[in-house]
Design a protein around this nucleic acid. Sequence first.
DNA 1: TATATTCGGTAATCCAAATTACCATCCGAA
DNA 2: TTCGGATGGTAATTTGGATTACCGAATATA
Lengths: 211, 211
Amino acid sequence: MARAAGDPERSYGGVPLTRRRAERRDRLLAAGVELFTSVGYQQTKITELCAAAGMSNRGFYQEFDTKEQLLLALHSRTNQLAYDHVSQALTALDVVDVQARVGLLVDVFMAAVMSDPRLPRLNYVEAVGVSPALERQHEEWVGRWSALIEQEADQAAASGTAPRRDFHLTAIALVGAITGLLREWQAHAAHYPPAEIAAEAKAVILAAITR
Amino acid sequence: MARAAGDPERSYGGVPLTRRRAERRDRLLAAGVELFTSVGYQQTKITELCAAAGMSNRGFYQEFDTKEQLLLALHSRTNQLAYDHVSQALTALDVVDVQARVGLLVDVFMAAVMSDPRLPRLNYVEAVGVSPALERQHEEWVGRWSALIEQEADQAAASGTAPRRDFHLTAIALVGAITGLLREWQAHAAHYPPAEIAAEAKAVILAAITR
DNA sequence: TATATTCGGTAATCCAAATTACCATCCGAA
DNA sequence: TTCGGATGGTAATTTGGATTACCGAATATA
């Protein structure tokens, strides 16, 4: 039996539609990271994007409706990846010691986000203030990250390492602190060894929680 | 003797050129704050700006070359104003107690920046990632603000209230923490009383310095 | 192998918005 | 009160770039 038109599995050039689309998408994502962080998001033209991704102008609209959607995808992807790693690591670590837990949280997070200096640039500079949708997505992630920190703080409080109190705003401030460090780092990556950035983040978080 | 053409004092409509220009400029700045924070920087058209400022399209180019310059002016103006207040207040306060000094620093800063929720929105959301020039200006201000915090930390260390160490990165992280709090606040101003934000900022700064 | 169909590239099309040219108006000086 | 020059508004111009229409090439099926 023949595969009907539009069938996702219908292969073409030996490659099924599904995969071709996925590959195109990946190439566009890669081009997005590259151009958004060098040329700048706003300054990047769809055409340039396609050229960098090795496809024609048309290919873009096959995968995304707008440039903003590509940026949303990138922003979300980086956060999600880091978040998965971090929460997985924290779950695996069945230790209650705050210092150890926060240390791991920061190390894993930083490893994910600083693996490529373009990532913090993309998420903390280029993706800011672009559109209401992006601000919403930013807010969501701030919520998730701060909830994670808040959780650790609460746990520390429960085990007596930290005072019992509401850590909500503290967690938000700490997310801001990390963001600030990374924004500085991406601007002057040469000046700061990643380890120093991570160390500072840990220290500030611990100080604020166990204050 | 008659005033030559182009003389800045040459009055027109009873108002000297200098003042007319200053007033136009002010109206454009006000329109910029309003539109950049409601419509969004990128989405704001020069024409809208002029309409809001009660002048014709042409008036804009009389005072600024580009929309970006208007944004640069606004960004700088808010920082400068806050900075003047803060450094003046700190100089006037001849007390060495860190808690008191940081408390004042934060109070004065927050009073200046939170007087209008649009200001943090403008400086911490709309003005981010707009252009290399704006990033440069941002970096400069981060440098000034963190230097101020670093100075207080050093002073605290000198008086034995804080450990002696390099506070450079800590200060940068703390600037980020304040920025993060304000960015959250401007997005959900209704949820957080300004005093809570200020209190949290103070607490985090003190904890990080005296850790 | 022939044919219907899908894919992807090229090249218009179309639009929005910055920039500028031009004109009517207004002012100050003689 | 008349003239030269400045001022600011209106409206055309132009450009940059997103979006789309169309076409040839390539593929799978009968």
